[in-house]
Amino acid sequence: MSLLDVRDLQVDFGRRHIPAVRGVNFSLDAGQRLGVIGESGSGKTVTALAVMGLLPENAHVAGSVVLDGQQIVGLAERGLARLRGNTVSMVFQEPMTALDPTMRVGRQVAEVLRLHQGAESGPARERVVAMLAEVGLSDADRIADAYPHQLSGGQRQRVVLAMALINSPSLVICDEPTTALDVTVQALVLAKLDEVLDASGAACLFISHDLAVVSQVCDQVLVMLDGRIVESGTVEKLFTAPEHPYTRGLVATARLDLTVPGQRLPTVDDFYAGGDHG
């Protein structure tokens, strides 16, 4: 049985039922990593929020999302809260949305641990410092005592990663986790994510608009466009033999390193004229 099985997922919003996800199917095995690429508004984040049970109240969800044998669609908040952290956790683009600015980061990571495992505060501190070290924060003891604003963006995102991993979830959902970071820090965080996923054996759903970033962590990729999956396969297949014209466009725009400086860059519109991509 798959760890995550999404069948005919449909999400729309508000009284006018504006569609965001229009019938999405995919599954994820334990330890597998799946990238979801697409641009703003393609439905990739809404799909992830549906898996976390984090959609706002004005969302209408139809279809089925089964995580670790449990149906998420229609599940009450209490059941969802138990799943989050234990079975599934999430890393967002902006680490400050996940961190409390008034609390030392070590305590915040410990809180996640205590919430789900009821650990005592003594050993919790040790676990927290070990986890911070594992995500590549040297001087983890000092970092644990720092407030979020005293850390750099890359350090903050690794604290969030530590929070996401400390309960050894089966699935980690990452939504544009490095988009707000410098390229050097991004490379560091991606390498660390790859490493800690390997070590923990957790599965990963990795959402990004950037195929190059996704390929650092995932072998399998879904391409979303206007709420639908238009193509799926290995990174290699998508990259060497993309089938959908939109995917061809995405691959072409992702390769800034292959272009001649100053010459006109290929755009998605050169390959796929189906939407508004301005």
Binding site: V183, Q186, D194, A212, S215, V235, F239, R255, D257
Partner: peptide
């Protein structure tokens, strides 16, 4: 800085 630019990786 150059090495950090993500390139498409076809096998990890």
């Amino acid at each position: 800085l150059l090495d950090a630019v993500p390139r498409i990786r076809t096998s990890r």
